[in-house]
Design a protein around this nucleic acid. Structure first.
Lengths: 157, 157
DNA sequence: GCTTGACCTCAAGCCGACTTGAGATTGCAG
DNA sequence: CTGCAATCTCAAGTCGGCTTGAGGTCAAGC
């Protein structure tokens, strides 16, 4: 094996894309099923990914860090060119959306930390004094867990 | 109904606790099953929660915002007194752990935002230039999704 | 040409944090 | 005392993001 599983057109077999992206082949098949990446097939029905798939996968991972679901990542990807690097304008639109999410989440965390700091030493955890127990103020009161940056409509109130 | 479903000892029926905590009764039963809160039973087998349950539930919600799983929240709760407000020392230990997590996550997000800012206008998304595509640098490369603050061992490297 | 590892499809399983539904019981207001 | 909302238990379902397994095919190095 010379250039691993990369053919002369530079197209990647799934194992190669897996190795380069750090994802399992099963995950890549899943991403493809979700429409995040696309492949052509060999005569023998094996996937061959264009090199842009590498970029798209990286994009998806970054999106996940920002807190996007795969569905949201797909929506964002759909607005970027499939087979070439995005232009500045295209990229800016996406990047700005991400920045807003990041900023929002950072702000949320900072407020929580502040409340926490106020608590340290107060020995409180009494329902009336402690900001932590101020319901409706606790970010994400709509539902817990994985919804950190998911851009659920920030509570109007 | 005067004081809703709160009996004279101040103990709360599940519906009352649900209303006051903002959680569904099913969630509270689940929390109880997980050992996060505890109840006594009436002769008719209905749950009656001590008022401290309110505090414990609030604690759990806050923990979730910080990114803890219910299991981790339980571990933290187990180190706090079950039936009285925690003392300053007890609380400090927990709060400091949380703050570390929050700081770590904020740092992560800030680094991501910085990379993103560097990208805006560069129109890159080329694999070599763009920091976003620097694999192993993208926080959470170990696995995506809901693992934001989960305190998975931050990559040593 | 053969062997072996990479690949294929499809269905099912897993995790966390709950929700939903069925069917039975309880408990408070009138 | 009655009626009806609230509660009970237990099993199963949901969602996102994958992984695992079974059973079968493909392709490359010797």
């Amino acid at each position: 094996m010379l250039a691993a599983m990369t053919d002369r057109d530079g197209r990647l077999a799934i194992g190669e894309l897996a190795a380069r992206s750090g994802l399992a082949p099963s995950a890549l098949r899943y991403y493809e099923e979700m429409g995040l990446i696309h492949s052509e097939r060999t005569t023998g029905n094996q996937r061959r990914y264009p090199r842009t798939a590498l970029r798209r996968v990286a994009f998806v991972r970054a999106a996940q860090v920002v807190g996007l679901s795969l569905e949201e990542a797909r929506a964002a990807l759909d607005r970027l060119p499939v087979d070439r690097a995005p232009g500045a304008a295209e990229w800016n639109a996406v990047a700005r959306t991400w920045q807003r999410r990041i900023d929002a989440r950072i702000g949320e965390l900072e407020r929580l930390r502040e409340r926490l700091t106020g608590c340290i030493g107060c020995g409180c955890l009494s329902l009336r004094k402690c900001g932590l127990y101020n319901p409706g103020d606790v970010a994400g009161s709509q539902g817990p867990g994985a919804r950190y940056l998911e851009g659920d409509p920030l509570p109007e109130a």
